[in-house]
């Protein structure tokens, strides 16, 4: 059981709010972090902990785009397609990924490693085109950079090209 496995974390989350239902999004985030998606059993468990009906949990889950209701690949590639990224070539990024991995938008590779999504603005407009892979941002993408990110992720499970604490433009060296 998810809730039992993370008893301390769940208790810490619950202690932050005077009203239990407020813990819903944090608990759903926890469930997705552990399972890769929000399963029906997780929703039922969370409903029980918070004193809600499963329907109340489900209606909330479906409102938020970040919750996956079905299992996805190990790495969720989310390419921003909003205007600011589109101006600097985000449509090409989608094509590069499709070409390299052979999957269309919404599909997962046969080895279950990559799922490709095209999403709306991720707050990275000055450093586009960009994509988010799981928790990390990769910005100012070129075809070569996208290739390296995908290769590194496949081989090592991580990639050093991800963005650290954000500052752009970098101040000029004095």
């Amino acid at each position: 059981m998810l809730i039992d496995r993370f008893k301390n974390e769940v208790e810490d989350i619950l202690s932050r709010y005077p009203v239990k239902r407020s813990a819903l999004l944090p608990l759903l985030n926890l469930a997705q972090r552990e399972e890769g998606f929000v399963s029906e059993s997780a929703m039922k468990e969370i409903a029980k902990v918070l004193g809600l009906t499963p329907a109340q949990v489900f209606e909330t889950v479906t409102f938020y785009t970040m919750f996956n209701l079905k299992p996805i690949g190990k790495f969720h590639l989310q390419v921003c397609k909003s205007l600011m990224c589109a101006l600097v070539g985000s449509d090409e990024v989608v094509v590069w990924i499709q070409k390299k991995l052979g999957i269309a938008q919404g599909q997962t590779t046969a080895d279950n490693l990559f799922t490709l999504s095209v999403v709306e603005c991720l707050g990275s407009c000055g450093t586009g085109p960009m994509m988010q892979v799981n928790d990390d941002y990769y910005e100012q993408l070129s075809e070569e950079k996208v290739g390296r990110v995908l290769d590194d992720l496949k081989r090592d499970g991580t990639c050093s090209l991800k963005t650290g604490p954000f500052m752009y433009p970098q101040p000029l060296a004095k």
Binding site: S22, L25, N29, F63
Partner: peptide, 27 residues
């Protein structure tokens, strides 16, 4: 002070939608 993560909804930047979301509801 606590950090509360949203889950991908532009409208939650509207202040009352933010409050609804913080209460664990649809934003």
């Amino acid at each position: 002070i606590y950090v509360h993560l949203g889950a991908g909804a532009y409208i939650c930047g509207e202040e009352t939608a933010l409050l609804e979301s913080l209460e664990g509801k649809r934003g």
